[in-house]
């Protein structure tokens, strides 16, 4: 028999974890929506965000010892700048190239980021400064509670999803991005500068992903290479929501977080150890088979 209090606690944990995944998933969807790039380096970009704080806030790496808040802000700025640099130096040259080429580039990018971090900070789990290990939690009914990092994740992911929806719907730049996403060539013919908008998309995507990485690290007290694995998990989320749908990525990530926690708690005894990791991936396969474009994905019609 399912105990209501436990069920609520597990559900809260699933939503909290899903909210952290959502930030990384929305970073993925934003880029796919605007540029069509399937970014397989999302896990490593989240890792970069997680370790960015360590690099700036602890003297062990670069001799810096910046306050935690400054380190977080700097990490997000680095994410923005990295997005600009990657677009200008790398991805701009792959516009119009086969999808597979771009996928391979993102895989290489992931390897470079991971290797760079191992070189710079080593393979160790790096503890976060105390200021980023808040001990507070919010009490909920039936004895459940939600911890600080999950609360921040839920709030920030809601802010990001609403902001991006408003941005795409009500701003000129957002309209340009939508136009470019719908038909890049037609947008260019109409004089729309899609290059600038694509740069913005990359910068925003990596900054949002960095925030996801920082919150994932906060949830476990510091940065560890296990965060890389989120790059695979978010595929289940974005496929479920629709690859190019930012609200879909948000919703999908919550579903994946819930599946993972329900799987770990309720299904391990039935399916066996690892149920929490297996169920989201089975879910991914089922979604691809039944609804390949996900809940809110756009059907792209190409004339040949």
């Amino acid at each position: 028999m399912v105990d209501a209090s436990t069920f609520l606690s597990i559900s809260i944990a699933g939503i909290g974890l899903g909210a952290l995944y959502a930030l990384v998933a929305m970073g993925f969807s934003l880029i796919y929506k605007v540029t069509g790039v399937l970014n397989f380096a999302q896990g490593q970009l989240a890792l970069l965000g997680a370790y960015g704080v360590v690099i700036f806030a602890t003297p062990a790496v670069l001799g810096l010892n910046l306050p935690a808040v400054v380190a977080v802000l700097l990490t997000i700025v680095v994410g923005l700048l990295l997005g600009i640099i990657l677009e200008r130096v790398v991805f701009r040259h792959f516009i119009g190239e086969p999808v597979l080429s771009v996928i391979i580039v993102t895989l290489a990018l992931g390897g470079i980021i991971s290797g760079f971090l191992r070189f710079l900070v080593g393979p160790n789990f790096m503890s976060y400064p105390d200021a980023l290990k808040p001990g507070w939690s919010i009490d909920l009914p039936l004895g459940a509670s939600i911890g600080a990092s999950f609360t921040l994740g839920v709030v920030l992911s809601l802010v990001v999803v609403v902001s991006l929806m408003l941005f795409f719907r009500y701003t000129v730049t957002g309209s340009i991005l939508r136009a470019a996403a719908a038909d890049e060539q037609a947008a260019m013919v109409l004089g729309v500068s899609i290059e600038r908008t694509i740069i913005i998309a990359w910068a925003l995507s990596i900054a949002i992903t960095s925030i996801g990485g920082i919150l994932l690290a906060m949830a476990s007290g510091g940065a560890g290479f296990t965060i890389e694995a989120v790059g695979i998990i978010i595929f289940a989320a974005v496929v479920f929501g629709g690859l190019d749908s930012i609200p879909g990525a948000f919703l999908g990530a919550l579903v994946v977080g819930l599946l993972q926690e329900y799987g770990s708690f309720y299904a391990t005894g039935v399916i066996g150890p690892g149920a929490g990791e297996i169920i989201p991936m089975v879910f991914l396969l089922v979604v691809i088979l039944i609804k390949p474009r996900g809940l809110f994905g756009t059907e792209r019609i190409e004339r040949i």
């Binding site: 597990i10 952290l20 789990f125 476990s220 560890g224 965060i227 708690f265």
Partner: peptide
Amino acid sequence: ANSAQSQLRKAKNRDIDYLIHQNTAAPMQV
């Protein structure tokens, strides 16, 4: 693992006093 919440709830529901952990350092930290 990036979260051990459901595992700890199991431990709590089962009234476990001592948990013996065989793993690596990162999941221990989580």
